[in-house]
Nucleic acid binder design. Sequence first.
DNA 1: CTAATTGCAAAGCGTTTGCAGGATC
DNA 2: GATCCTGCAAACGCTTTGCAATTAG
Lengths: 141, 141
Amino acid sequence: MAKGKATILERCAAIGLRMTKQRRVLAQVLESADDHPDAEEVYRRAHEIDGSISLATVYRTVKTFQEKGILDRLEFGDGKGRYEDAKREHHDHFFNLDTGEVIEFYDPEIEALQERISKRLGFRLVGHKLELYGVPVPPKK
Amino acid sequence: MAKGKATILERCAAIGLRMTKQRRVLAQVLESADDHPDAEEVYRRAHEIDGSISLATVYRTVKTFQEKGILDRLEFGDGKGRYEDAKREHHDHFFNLDTGEVIEFYDPEIEALQERISKRLGFRLVGHKLELYGVPVPPKK
DNA sequence: CTAATTGCAAAGCGTTTGCAGGATC
DNA sequence: GATCCTGCAAACGCTTTGCAATTAG
């Protein structure tokens, strides 16, 4: 994760965040996550490492990290926020409707096309979110 | 709205939903909406027409309509559900970050490209969500 | 008449926050 | 030592639900 870039911990330090025990644990948990955990799941993983971490701190920390651009907050439609390291390569998400699995993908054509559409609409593209939903071919059953 | 297709009311009837006064009002409100109202806003508009409608009924109705494929539920990241007639032409959403305005657009190239990406990943595309975020060019101020 | 639908108020769920104690710089 | 951070529990905003009354078919 964090291909060749600063770790979450380093980025925290770089912007002058106070490095508490809890933040260190959460930074590690979030850095080593290669999925998209919700707050409860982040809490679960952090709690295994340090039983003193509270859910409130998880919420406060992911919010701080997100505001500082360290984390991205995703929404997968179940009403819960999901978090991922903002410094990973840009990608979009493909949802396997049969299994619930989330596949990350990147396509330069899509990226370029979105730029063109934005220009056509009279805007400068600042960000985007693309989610595809599909079923395996040939179907699972 | 509902280009050449059945109205919400007609679609309700077609699937055998009981047509109550409240559902008639909500069908009308939702059909004539060309934006993306949240439940509270749907309630406000419906309440103007018929003061006896409750917020609970709005929630129950939009959920029923959504389950029956009459409405699409959208999430714009503020934690509230937004609703739009599912029978309108397919489109994606562009967010003007300066004004909060939401522009609907459709691009056949994007649609085709998504199909190709899905195939490449080994899936049959069932649905998608694309949101673009940008600022006006030249910038507003 | 029977089953579906409603309004109300209470509950549910994910998230935020006030506060007093505790840790960091 | 001043400030920032934490845990706890209470509060929050959106949504759902139990219930008894009402209404559609």
